[in-house]
């Protein structure tokens, strides 16, 4: 077995009194597509935010691609990571947000070109041709000169995916990327993600309420509740034959709410 792409070891996280993650431990293999499901407040989004270094951790260790994320070794000890170390680690990870977070004052093309030009010193020409390739891949090449405000939610989300890919991350984090979209347009975004999974060997973590998509897309599913992994397994095991009572209850609720599984 190859060494894991992500190792999460006894990680704790609290917001004030509220403990979101309790001694969380799991690993993700290189190229694995992992779906995180569970009720709101179960901590699944927090994991993605911690991996993107948007939240700190209170205890435990995380390794990404063999290196510590929130710590760095110094004289044989681990010390808290500084900005330079985080900068190195962030280069391995890309994130797509629920509400897209595009830069509203730039065209679609500039949104995708910006980060490679600033963080990788990519020349304007190279950045532009790569951005156009990516926009083409997500089906948004014809909107390259549009401003984000002129796009639909689903178009914005495809641009956001292209923007995150522009830095060629090893890991992509998808945080409820279809939750803010019109139901009939969700497929367009999901298709982009299927294509991405088929054409690249990126490691992908996906927080979603689209159980049908998680079922088809993921290699493995983690069911979270109360900041802990309650059950994990292949999509078929989790969705067709959940063992834990809490998993069964959650899936019943989701089906009752009209989501397909």
């Amino acid at each position: 077995m190859p060494s894991p792409m992500i190792e999460i070891d006894k990680v704790c996280k609290s917001f004030g009194e509220f403990q979101v993650l309790r001694d969380l431990t799991f690993t993700v293999a290189p190229g694995e597509k992992l779906a995180l499901i569970g009720p709101s407040g179960s901590g699944k989004t927090t994991i993605l935010r911690i991996l993107m270094t948007l939240e700190t951790i209170n205890a435990g260790h995380i390794k990404v691609d063999g290196d510590h994320l929130w710590h760095k070794p110094a004289n044989g000890n681990l010390v808290p990571a500084d900005e330079a170390h985080l900068h190195l680690m962030r280069a391995k990870i890309g994130m797509v947000f629920q509400l897209f977070n595009l830069f509203p004052h730039m065209t679609v093309l500039r949104n995708v070109m910006l980060a490679p030009m600033l963080t990788k010193r990519t020349g304007r020409k190279d950045a532009q041709s790569r951005a156009m390739d990516l926009l083409d891949m997500v089906g948004m090449a014809d909107k390259a000169t549009s401003m984000p405000a002129q796009l639909s939610g689903c178009q914005k989300q495809r641009v956001a995916i292209a923007r995150a890919l522009a830095l060629s991350p090893k890991i992509m984090l998808f945080d409820e990327v279809t939750s803010a979209l019109d139901p009939e347009l969700v497929e367009e975004v999901l298709n982009v993600m299927r294509k991405l999974a088929a054409e690249t060997d990126m490691t992908m973590l996906l927080v979603t309420h689209e159980m049908g998509f998680a079922h088809d897309f993921a290699d493995r599913v983690l069911f979270f509740d109360g900041g802990k992994i309650v059950e994990e397994g292949k999509p078929d095991e989790i969705f067709r034959h959940p063992k834990q009572e809490r998993t069964q209850a959650f899936l019943r609720k989701i089906i009752a709410a009209g989501h397909r599984v």
Binding site: M52, T53, L54, E83, H87, R90, A91, I93, G94, M95, F97, L99, N101, L102, F103, P104, H105, L114, A115, L118, T119, R163, A164, L167
Partner: peptide, 28 residues
């Protein structure tokens, strides 16, 4: 806040985030 978070996710440093993303929007 989501604009700052997008900057972090795209690995921009503080100065780049402020100069390229935050200030142009704040100026308006």
């Amino acid at each position: 806040r989501e604009q700052y978070e997008a900057c972090i996710a795209l690995n921009l440093n503080r100065w780049q985030s402020m100069y390229r993303v935050i200030l142009p929007q704040a100026l308006l």
